[in-house]
Lab assay of single mutants.
Amino acid sequence: GQVHVGDTTYHFPNPEEARKFAEKAAKENNLQVTQHGNTFKVE
């Protein structure tokens, strides 16, 4: 799974890890998570 936060892309071998990371980043920054397959975008 990939997580895009601003201009930075994080790669995770496990989509579940990617999702947890995205949700945590979104919560900390008052942002939203959008999911496209195994790619998550925090914005």
Rank of each mutant, 00 (worst) to 15 (best):
P13F: 07
E28P: 06
L31Q: 09
V33E: 01
Q32P: 06
H36P: 02
G6R: 06
N29A: 13
N29R: 11
A22Q: 00
H4G: 03
F40N: 03
F12T: 02
E28M: 09
V42Y: 01
G1M: 10
T34E: 05
P15F: 15
A18E: 02
Q32V: 14
V5M: 14
E28V: 09
A18S: 01
A26I: 01
H4D: 09
E16D: 11
T9P: 03
E17C: 08
E28Y: 08
E43H: 14
R19C: 10
V42W: 00
E28R: 09
E17L: 09
G37E: 08
H36C: 14
V5H: 07
A26N: 01
V33C: 07
G1V: 12
L31S: 11
H11F: 15
G37L: 05
Y10N: 03
P15C: 13
A26D: 02
V42M: 04
G1I: 11
F21P: 00
H11K: 07
P13H: 10
H4I: 15
G37C: 11
K27L: 13
N14V: 04
D7P: 09
P13E: 14
F12K: 01
F12I: 01
E17K: 03
E16S: 06
N14K: 04
F12W: 02
T8G: 05
K27H: 11
H36T: 12
T8E: 12
L31P: 02
A25G: 02
K24R: 11
T9Q: 07
K20H: 10
L31T: 09
G1A: 15
G1D: 04
E16H: 07
N29W: 14
E17G: 04
N29D: 08
T8F: 13
A22R: 00
L31E: 05
G37W: 02
Y10E: 02
A25I: 15
Q2P: 01
N29I: 06
D7H: 12
E28Q: 09
L31G: 14
A18P: 00
T9Y: 09
Q35H: 07
E43C: 10
F21L: 00
P13T: 12
E43S: 12
H36Y: 13
G37H: 05
A18I: 00
Q2L: 14
A18R: 00
E17Q: 07
V42G: 03
G37T: 02
G1L: 05
D7V: 07
N38A: 07
H11R: 06
K20Q: 13
F21T: 01
A26G: 06
F12N: 00
V42Q: 03
E43Y: 11
A18K: 00
E43I: 11
F40K: 00
R19N: 04
T39V: 14
N29T: 08
N29C: 13
D7Y: 09
V3Q: 00
K24N: 12
K27W: 10
K41M: 14
T39L: 13
F21M: 02
V42A: 03
G6M: 08
E16V: 05
T34V: 12
E43W: 13
T39Y: 10
F21Q: 02
E16Y: 07
T8S: 11
N38D: 09
E43A: 12
F21D: 03
E17Y: 04
G6K: 06
A22N: 00
E17R: 01
T9M: 11
F12Y: 03
T9W: 14
K41Q: 10
P15A: 14
A25N: 07
N14R: 03
F21E: 03
D7I: 07
N38Q: 06
R19H: 06
H4E: 13
Y10I: 06
N38H: 08
E16I: 05
N14T: 15
T8I: 14
G6E: 06
K24M: 13
Q32H: 12
A22W: 01
E17D: 12
N29M: 15
L31W: 13
K20I: 13
A18M: 00
H36Q: 12
H4S: 09
N30V: 04
E23F: 11
E23Q: 08
Q2N: 08
A22K: 00
E23L: 10
E28N: 08
V42E: 03
A18D: 01
L31A: 13
K41N: 12
T39N: 11
N14E: 05
Q32Y: 12
T8P: 02
Q35S: 07
Y10V: 05
K41Y: 15
K41A: 08
Y10S: 03
E28A: 11
T9C: 06
A25Q: 12
G6C: 08
R19I: 05
K24Q: 14
Y10D: 00
T39K: 07
A26H: 02
V3H: 00
G1S: 14
Q2F: 15
L31Y: 09
G6Y: 09
V42K: 01
D7W: 09
E28L: 11
T8N: 12
H36S: 11
E23C: 08
H11A: 06
A22P: 00
T39R: 05
E23D: 10
F40G: 04
K20A: 14
D7L: 10
Y10A: 02
K20D: 12
A26K: 01
G1R: 02
F12A: 01
E23I: 10
E17W: 04
E16N: 06
V3M: 01
A26E: 02
A26S: 05
G6V: 04
Y10M: 05
V3F: 02
G1Y: 15
A25M: 15
V5N: 03
T9N: 04
H11G: 05
R19A: 07
N14C: 07
F40W: 11
P15M: 15
E28G: 06
N29E: 08
K20P: 03
F21V: 01
A22V: 02
Q35R: 11
Q35M: 08
L31R: 05
A26Q: 03
A25R: 08
D7C: 09
N14H: 06
T8M: 14
N29P: 05
T39I: 15
K27M: 13
F40V: 07
N30A: 08
V3R: 00
L31N: 05
A18F: 00
N14W: 04
